[in-house]
Design a protein around this nucleic acid. Structure first.
Lengths: 233, 233
DNA sequence: AAGCTTGCTTGACTCACATCAAGGTGAGAA
DNA sequence: TTCTCACCTTGATGTGAGTCAAGCAAGCTT
């Protein structure tokens, strides 16, 4: 953990400037925020913060992946979101007003995160309606995403959730998806057990719809998959 | 549908003024919004808008209940939220930017809704950071709620969802809950089938934890229910 | 090389909840 | 009164996905 102005490299800096949370700022405002920002370099598996913790910073990921998840006393874990480079999280701190934060945050692989003082960012918000609008747009997007998430969980089954994920996933080349996380993480993301994911992948393979090889999933018949989703959605 | 300034009764007006969306407004701003607002008097079962529709208004419920729900082609319905008097909805319009609205809205019983011009409200937002903060606070609360909703759906079973609902429900007197909607609506709200709800209620009754009579649910042992929830939560 | 660990797969079993189907009850209509 | 319709209940049966347990392969360590 170090002060941001000093140690951030150029690529990270330009990433920060582009982040929706910051991109409507005047250069001086941006600098001011950076001066009190802290940089966290996290090793794989290292916690950034824990559920229930009281936070004073909002975060922007500049390297690696951050996994946000919830935990039940019996140890069940549900991944709420995987934060990738350029995205912010924990903006809720701005309005939660002293309440505790609702998720855990841990680095999936080595990651770098910039923490921005929430109180100070609030001042910035108060100073600029444009920045407010940026943030509101962001929140509204997140809400919409959460809404469709609730949808998927209630209206649809595990296969459907996997299918929509597959069809929206960033393809490496044409119809090939390269998993950047182990399969059990994907499973949790989709709220299914690793065993079940394995079975579904197997079934889809037998139906000649996909081909799985290690970390790679190839969509053999994208059209067919799309109609499967369409029929049920 | 009529112009709001003319036909709104006094109680509805004061309700509007208290709504989080509007309560930071200057009196003139409030009046200006009202002048272009429209009032919808809906009969039971009447649609306010449909999923996929392009909206230009945000809404505040001043009477009755509005049910927000999603529909699949095969007719499955999932109630996303029940809006009661004093609450706003469809604020997402402000940031969705010409996209279609993600839910249906229909009156559960006779209801009155005030529709406020979204573009004009945006102007108001631009004019006042305080109003922005109000709205952001509102959105952040909703997001938090959605998050716990995803939680309940994935981490917990139907009985648990009913229990948490029971414990949070507005009690009529002491430990008596009076359902203001038919049971199958509650079922959908909890993402379970009416039959299953019926069975769960029966089981809890047999365990002497609750007593059900028509529209009334009495919590016979609130403490026991709370520990049940706590054990699993 | 032998042993451990981690991630993945597979099979047998279980269980919560859905589905299908058949009543029951009360309110309002004819 | 009787019909009908909406709402609710109950039983029989089906099924998707979780649980438990065993085993395999690849990559480590020592």
């Amino acid at each position: 953990m170090n002060y941001a102005g000093m140690i951030l490299t150029e690529p990270s800096l330009s990433l920060l400037k582009q982040a929706p949370l910051l991109n409507a700022l005047e250069p001086e405002q941006f600098k001011a925020l950076l001066n009190t920002a802290t940089v966290y370099d996290l090793a794989e598996g290292e916690f950034l913060f824990q559920q229930g913790q009281r936070l004073e910073q909002i975060f922007i990921c500049t390297e690696g992946f951050i996994k946000l998840f919830r935990l039940t006393p019996n140890g069940d874990e549900k991944i709420v979101e995987i934060i990738s480079v350029g995205n912010s999280f924990a903006e809720a701190v701005l309005f939660l007003g002293g309440q505790q934060y609702p998720v855990h945050a841990v680095a999936l692989k080595a990651a770098q995160v910039v923490g921005i003082n929430a109180a100070q960012y609030q001042q910035t918000l108060r100073a600029s309606v444009d920045v407010c609008f940026n943030l509101m747009g962001l929140m509204s997007k997140r809400m919409h995403w959460l809404l469709t998430e609730v949808d998927r969980l209630t209206l649809h089954n595990a296969t459907f959730r996997l299918l929509t994920w597959l069809l929206e996933a960033p393809t490496h080349s044409a119809d090939t998806i390269l998993l950047d996380v182990p399969k059990h993480v994907l499973a949790s993301r989709l709220s299914i057990k690793p065993e079940t994911l394995s079975r579904i992948l197997k079934r889809l393979s037998e139906q000649q719809l996909i081909r799985v090889e290690e970390q790679m999933i190839e969509l053999l018949d994208r059209a067919a998959l799309q109609t499967m989703v369409a029929l049920e959605a």
